[in-house]
């Protein structure tokens, strides 16, 4: 492990190197006093440097249980925590099935597809569904909707909220108690009031909003989903230096991953498609390149299969790759009408 990787200022790094501290191990045994004398810097500064170091080495080796290492979890604890988690339903049972119950919290899910397939529809649907009250089996959370393309239509959100409420009331019509308990929440307008909408006009703003979200989420409790529609648009329009684009994007995805973990929420990124020349033919693939494809936990591709819209799990650490039909109705995303169960495992 080299000193060069430590997150300290270059002047400090230069001093460390010239004093002969080249590796982390050489730093680990030194006391702040000694370091301050060797580098000819203030004691405070020296102890700051040493403070940076353990944090940094810890993230290097994440083995062992929580009793052994602070901030870590055993796999068993993670499992039970996972089982406690509720998922955000997409409104389409088949889609929920292949997603393992819906969109997962603490994970970054990317959804891509050709224009007009229903990405924005799914985004709006999730922003609505996350608000289903606990009594109705939902999460009763709020939603952050980051719109980079201007395609969020509030009229449509209202329609989808109405559709969602109608279906919920229908499903729970025998539970009068539940219906009475959350009469107030089950209004389309109160659904709309809990969608925080950011309209982004450049990639700078997109980065800014993601950096700022940490603070925003600390103030606004109960946000359970962040939807970015689409993550691609500005990065595809006006970024010339592709190498830098990749680094900025990966910084952004790390930040999102961190938000998802810290605030226990789901992050859904909508992505566009592009064509790629592989093995002698043009094929569709999601935009932003190969290194970006590592940035998200799950990747779902929406595509046309004959006359039906289908969703395909392209990448996931825990789910089998599978496809399921869905349809976009006036109420929102629902099961495909033509056939009830046609989930295909691959």
């Amino acid at each position: 492990m080299e000193i060069a990787n430590l997150p300290i200022s270059p002047s400090q790094r230069a001093k460390l190197l010239s004093a002969g501290y080249t590796t982390l191990t050489s730093l680990s045994a030194v006391s702040p006093f000694q370091l301050a004398r060797d580098l000819n810097i203030a004691l405070q500064e020296a102890s700051d440097i040493l403070k940076v170091m353990p944090e940094f080495t810890r993230s290097e080796s994440l083995h062992g249980g929580n009793a052994i290492l602070k901030g870590a979890q055993t796999a068993w604890d993670m499992l039970s925590e996972e089982q406690m988690q509720k998922h955000i339903t997409t409104g389409c049972e088949n889609l929920d099935t292949i997603l393992g119950g819906g969109i997962h919290c603490k994970e970054v899910t990317e959804v891509g597809g050709v224009p007009g397939i229903g990405k924005t529809q799914l985004g709006i649907q999730l922003a609505v569904n996350v608000q289903i009250p606990v009594e109705y089996g939902g999460l009763h959370g709020k939603a952050v909707y980051i719109d980079t393309e201007g395609s969020f239509m509030v009229e449509r959100a209202h329609q989808i909220a109405e559709g969602c409420i109608m279906d919920m009331l229908d499903k729970f019509r025998h539970h009068q108690k539940v219906i009475l308990a959350c009469q107030e929440q089950m209004q389309p307008n109160s659904f709309l009031a809990n969608i925080f909408y950011f309209r982004i006009c450049s990639y700078t703003e997109q980065i800014a909003v993601i950096n700022y979200l940490g603070k925003f989420l600390a103030e606004q409790k109960d946000v359970k989903i962040i939807i970015i529609d689409s993550v691609t648009f500005h990065f595809r329009q006006d970024f010339d230096d592709l190498a830098r684009r990749t680094r900025v994007l990966s910084g952004m995805s790390l930040e999102l991953m961190k938000l998802a973990k810290t605030y226990n929420l789901a992050v859904v990124l909508l992505n566009q498609v592009t064509t790629k020349f592989t093995e002698g033919s043009f094929q569709l693939t999601l935009a932003l390149g190969d290194s970006w494809s590592h940035a998200c936990t799950n990747r779902v591709i929406l595509y046309w299969n004959g006359n039906d819209r289908h969703a395909y799990i392209d990448k996931s650490p825990s789910l089998r790759s599978a496809s399921a039909p869905f349809s976009v109705t006036s109420k929102g995303i629902r099961n495909a009408t033509s056939q009830c169960k046609r989930v295909r495992m691959m």
């Binding site: 997150p7 300290i8 200022s9 400090q12 700051d48 940076v52 922003a127 952050v144 909707y145 969020f152 509030v154 009229e155 959100a157 209202h158 307008n189 709309l192 009031a193 809990n194 969608i195 925080f196 909408y197 950011f198 309209r199 982004i200 006009c201 700078t204 703003e205 980065i207 800014a208 909003v209 993601i210 950096n211 700022y212 603070k215 925003f216």
Partner: peptide
Amino acid sequence: MGLDQVKSAVERISEITCPPYQTALSLM
């Protein structure tokens, strides 16, 4: 500069650059 300084500077810049939010209701 050190990490802490850069972080807090970036945080501040982000906060100011970030456009204000609206709820979907006020949009409506």
